[in-house]
Design a protein around this nucleic acid. Structure first.
Lengths: 125, 125
DNA sequence: ACATGCTGCTAAGTATGTCAAGCATGCTAA
DNA sequence: TTAGCATGCTTGACATACTTAGCAGCATGT
């Protein structure tokens, strides 16, 4: 079977490393971000290390502003439903609408297959 | 009357009464909403009575789906930052706003909502 | 050596969203 | 009456986002 499933099905934790990497690219310290956003450095550390599951939209918004990242993307990475799209998995509902009725097994398989494709295309390391 | 009420789009709490009024218009009980959205009736009660300040986006999303309300509007009423930074959609033209921009997600909501009404109107004689 | 000032991280505490259980009222029927 | 059943609401407990205070390491300077 696809044990890729177990490794990729939880996409909620891509947020922390993403924020961590972005901050380092901007060469900002945790306390510098705290000073500019009001989010405590302790919390930022927990966020980047995946110890916080669902940070509030307000936190995501201020980080998006400071880091120059799209707010919607952070919302989506945090697992929040976003206005124009589906709630959990990126663009899978649009795909599902195009594919018609699919079972849950098929949906999961498709989602993971998509992740696999993206990995191959080298969108990230 | 002057629309002092509509100018009270303050983040204090227009959300609770708005949700309460909408639910009553749909003739749904708290427990009926609980059964269909998974949000407990206890929590719904607190929400409608203003005892909950910032309900999670997930709760707002499921309520928006079942009530046929725009998710963005509930997010804004709850005081969350919203992507487009837009605001001031007059609540008097709620229906027009709802039917004006129908994403796929909203279409689903409308279908669900319609089915709900028909079911109640049909079985409740 | 000691000290100062960074870095990130952790421990403990507070605040609050959320739920399960139960209470009180009102309605309908036996 | 009494017995049920549905409604909205309250309480008490739990989970977790978030903060303040502090720790350990690594520089740099005196």
């Amino acid at each position: 079977m696809l044990d890729i499933l177990s490794s990729m099905s939880d996409s909620s934790n891509a947020l922390g490393p993403y924020l961590s990497r972005t901050r380092k690219e901007l060469k900002l310290s945790l306390r510098a971000v705290e000073a500019q956003t009001g989010v405590s450095n302790a919390y930022l550390s927990q966020l980047e290390n995946g110890k916080i599951k669902t940070p509030s939209p307000k936190v995501l918004h201020s980080l998006a502003l400071k880091y120059g990242l799209p707010y919607e993307q952070l919302m989506e990475l945090a697992g929040y439903p976003i206005p124009g799209k589906s709630q959990n998995q990126p663009s899978s509902s649009r795909l599902a609408a195009r594919l018609g009725e699919t079972s849950e097994e098929e949906e999961e398989a498709l989602a993971d297959f998509l992740a696999l494709i993206r990995k191959r295309n080298g969108s990230e390391l």
